[in-house]
């Protein structure tokens, strides 16, 4: 093994498109999201450096570990989430190709992107306090509603493409833009459920300020209550920012053909433009949503989104059989 064969993968993992790129682009998308929200509400919005300033401020604060919690289980979720999201980016194309592409990488990526929600739920549970336990139950309940829909929404185009490889699906969708029109329900469901993965309206019930105060918990960048404080909260928020990048990148690859047919910097530019557009759509959805009760959200997922995605899959199977 040469020095180059060690340094180059480490560059991919730590610098680009790994940890550093995901962090910085995540901060930018967080700012963009807040800016869009404020512009729609006719407010000035935060300065561009605000997300990084918030992150540094949280780092300087004391990291509190509850007395009776399981320390390892409590401390590890932000790092597990960051590791899962960064690993998922190996199979999602940021330029014309992915770093580690194989048949079935879509399924691996989907399950890797499920890890953050599960780990944060475990963090709530491991803090061993009553309010966090209730939040854990709410978070897990919502997870059951949106995770499966997110997976099905991204599997629907995979049925037509006849592949579980992200690059192959991307290539297929790029060459058949008309099919994208038929995938609009799946695309919308993917966007709505990505809101859930990012703990945004209308999936933010466990973080509702009016339902639980800020006593034993810290405020997070997206919700209002988190079991973490200080450095752990900073890394937890960072993981959610990184997930926004990975989620937008995956939706871009599956529905918008990724950066296929472009090379080098133009491919990266195309990736950035498309992911910014997806985050803009996420901001619009967030602005349009009112705060709703958890039961209303669950019913919306089960009785409206589930039949819709099942119909989409049926349509895609029909198209697939007709195409053969």
């Amino acid at each position: 093994m040469t020095l180059n064969s060690i340094l180059l993968p480490l560059f991919f993992l730590i610098i680009f498109p790994g940890f550093l790129f995901l962090s910085l682009y995540g901060f930018f998308l967080e700012w963009l999201d807040k800016k869009c929200l404020n512009l729609i509400k006719n407010k000035p919005g935060p300065a561009i450096y605000r997300p990084i300033a918030d992150f540094i401020q949280l780092l300087s604060k004391e990291t509190f570990i509850p007395k009776h919690c399981d320390t390892i289980l409590f401390k590890s979720p932000p790092f597990l989430a960051i590791a899962a999201i960064t690993t998922s980016m190996l199979s999602i194309p940021v330029w014309e190709k992915a770093l580690f592409s194989f048949q079935g990488d879509l399924i691996v990526t989907l399950y890797l992107l499920m890890i953050p929600a599960i780990t944060f739920s475990l963090a709530n549970r491991s803090s061993n306090t009553p309010f966090e336990a209730v939040e854990e139950l709410r978070t897990s309940t919502q997870l059951f509603a949106y995770e499966v829909l997110f997976m099905l929404a991204l599997l629907a185009p995979a049925i037509i493409a006849g592949s579980w490889n992200i690059i192959e699906i991307s290539k297929f969708m790029f060459h058949r833009p008309l099919l994208l029109i038929l995938q609009i329900p799946a695309f919308l469901i993917a966007l709505i459920t990505l809101q859930g993965k990012l703990k945004r309206l209308h999936f933010d019930t466990p973080y509702n300020k009016t339902e639980a105060g800020e006593g034993s918990s810290g405020g997070s960048a997206f919700g209002e209550v988190s079991p973490f404080r200080g450095g752990l909260l900073a890394f937890s928020n960072l993981a959610i920012n990184m997930e926004m990048v990975a989620g937008a990148a995956l939706i871009n690859a599956i529905f918008f053909g990724g950066a296929f047919n472009a090379t080098g910097l133009s491919a990266i530019g195309l990736f950035i433009l498309k992911t910014i557009f997806i985050v803009f759509l996420l901001s619009i959805i967030k602005t349009l949503m009112a705060r709703i009760r958890i039961k209303q959200m669950m019913n919306f997922c089960r009785k409206i989104l589930t039949p819709l995605i099942l119909a989409q899959m049926a349509l895609n199977i029909f198209i697939k059989i007709k195409m053969q």
Partner: peptide, 17 residues
């Protein structure tokens, strides 16, 4: 490269973070 194999990449990033 084996360092980009997902389980190994996961462990490396976890340790780095």
């Amino acid at each position: 490269n084996i360092l980009l194999f997902p389980p190994i990449a996961f462990i490396l990033i976890f340790i780095f973070a």
